[in-house]
């Protein structure tokens, strides 16, 4: 018999763990009894509409604010302890750094605070994102400031990356580059906590997702599971108006709206029955509006949650 895990041996501390985490500001409960366990090496998506409590959760994790109740830890230690933050790279939703600093200043300053950083890797990052490190942040565009944020979060190759709305303000090409970077770091073994309100980004990167609404955890599920549960909007533009009653009774169809060009459907789960039914019509164009979380999940979970 081999002892894979000796009984009684202390478990490896999780990169992120929260138990009953609660934060109230006056009468507003921004985060309510949150339980989270993020495992080593996973890319964990943290989804929710704006104001759901995502940033508040991150600020609790990093020890910027104290929980009203419950606990949260980074690698088993409170984020309030400086040592717990040594292994963390943090990209805030809005980069607030002294406007007079250049990217070089930021790298030098934060590198020193962290007791060193990967110089070659940082140089490569600057190249990769085509960032001139000698210009003051105040002179940079939003996109370029964003890049400075990315570089400072990744430069010391942290074990845990906490990314808050990482690609807002980045153009699509840079978003792709950023996604590649996240995947590389994850395959190196880094854990990634990715907070976002846009589904495609989380879908592209995360393996598991937590959905937050009004401070409460609605669900924690794999992407595949979410995709199965998610609703899709399908616009069918037909040569002649589709007959009434054709779609209403199909399994998964939740809503049918007729318009001048045809019909719009809201479908839960597989769209197969809809496609098969539509085969009998002259469909000139199919339009499926972008799967934005705000559209897709918000209404769904507004109903689902009490």
């Amino acid at each position: 018999m081999t002892a894979a895990a000796a009984p009684g041996a202390p478990a490896m501390p999780l990169p992120i763990e929260a138990r009953g985490l609660t934060k109230s500001f006056g009468r507003l409960t921004a985060v309510d009894s949150l339980d989270l366990a993020v495992h080593p090496g996973e890319v964990f998506g943290f989804l929710g509409p704006n104001g759901a409590g995502k940033t508040t959760t991150i600020r609790l994790l990093l020890g910027f604010i104290n929980p009203s109740a419950g606990t949260c830890t980074l690698f088993g230690r409170s984020g309030w302890e400086p040592g717990a933050r040594r292994r963390v790279g943090y990209l805030p939703a809005e980069l607030a750094i002294d406007r007079r600093y250049t990217a070089s200043d930021v790298i030098e300053f934060f590198g020193e605070l962290r007791g060193g950083y990967d110089r070659q890797f940082t140089r490569d990052l600057l190249d990769r994102f085509a960032l001139d490190p000698s210009r003051p942040l105040g002179d940079l565009s939003t996109g370029n400031r964003r890049k400075v944020g990315i570089v400072q979060a990744f430069m010391h190759r942290p074990d845990l990356l906490i990314l808050d709305e990482p690609t807002s303000g980045l153009d699509p090409l840079l978003q792709q580059e950023f996604h590649r970077l996240v995947r590389e770091e994850a395959s190196r073994g880094a854990t990634v906590f990715l907070s976002s309100h846009v589904l495609p980004e989380v879908e592209a990167l995360a393996s598991r997702v937590a959905i937050l609404r009004k401070g409460r955890l609605v669900t924690v599920a794999s992407i595949a599971e979410l995709r199965r549960r998610a609703r899709q909007r399908i616009d069918l533009f037909t040569a002649t108006p589709p007959p009434r009653g054709l779609f209403e009774t199909l399994p998964g169809v939740r809503q049918v709206t007729y318009h001048d060009g045809g019909v719009q459907l809201l479908v839960e789960g597989s769209v197969d029955p809809v496609v098969k039914a539509a085969a009998g019509l002259t469909v000139e164009r199919i339009h499926t509006p972008g799967q934005d979380l705000e559209d897709l999940f918000l209404e769904y979970y507004q109903e689902a949650a009490p």
Binding site: L62, R86, Y90, L95, D98, L113, R114
Partner: peptide, 17 residues
């Protein structure tokens, strides 16, 4: 107030220090 303090405190440094 400027918001610049928070990112500095994301580094391994104590507030007292």
């Amino acid at each position: 107030e400027d918001g610049t303090l928070e990112l500095i405190l994301a580094n391994p440094i104590s507030r007292a220090s």
